[in-house]
C-alpha cells in the first residue's frame, strides 16, 4: 500500500490506491485528522482536515 507523509508529525501513513480526493484518515501515531488531496497531475498528498460540519438537511 502506498505511503504518504503526515503533515503534522512527519510520520508515514498507508493510503489505499483507490482512495478518493477528500477521503479522511486518522493518523494513529499522532491523532491528526487528515484529508487526501489530489492535484491536476494526479499527485497525492495529505493535508490537515478542516473542521467540517456534518450534513443536516431536511
Amino acid at each position: 500500500m502506498p505511503k504518504l507523509s503526515c503533515p503534522v508529525c512527519g510520520g508515514s501513513l498507508d493510503i489505499p490506491e483507490d482512495a478518493l480526493p477528500g477521503e479522511l484518515f486518522e493518523h494513529e501515531e499522532c491523532g491528526a485528522q487528515l484529508e487526501l488531496e489530489v492535484d491536476d497531475q494526479g499527485s497525492r498528498r495529505l493535508k490537515e482536515a478542516e473542521e467540517i460540519a456534518e450534513d443536516w438537511g431536511e
Binding site: 478518493l20 477528500g22 479522511l24 467540517i52
Partner: peptide
C-alpha cells in the same frame, strides 16, 4: 456548511462540497 463529511458507498469517510444546508 460549505464542506460536509459523508460516508461513501464503500463505507469510507470523505469530505465533499456541501450543498445548501
Amino acid at each position: 456548511k460549505k464542506r460536509i463529511v459523508i460516508v461513501d458507498e464503500r463505507g469510507r469517510r470523505r469530505a465533499i462540497e456541501g450543498g445548501y444546508t
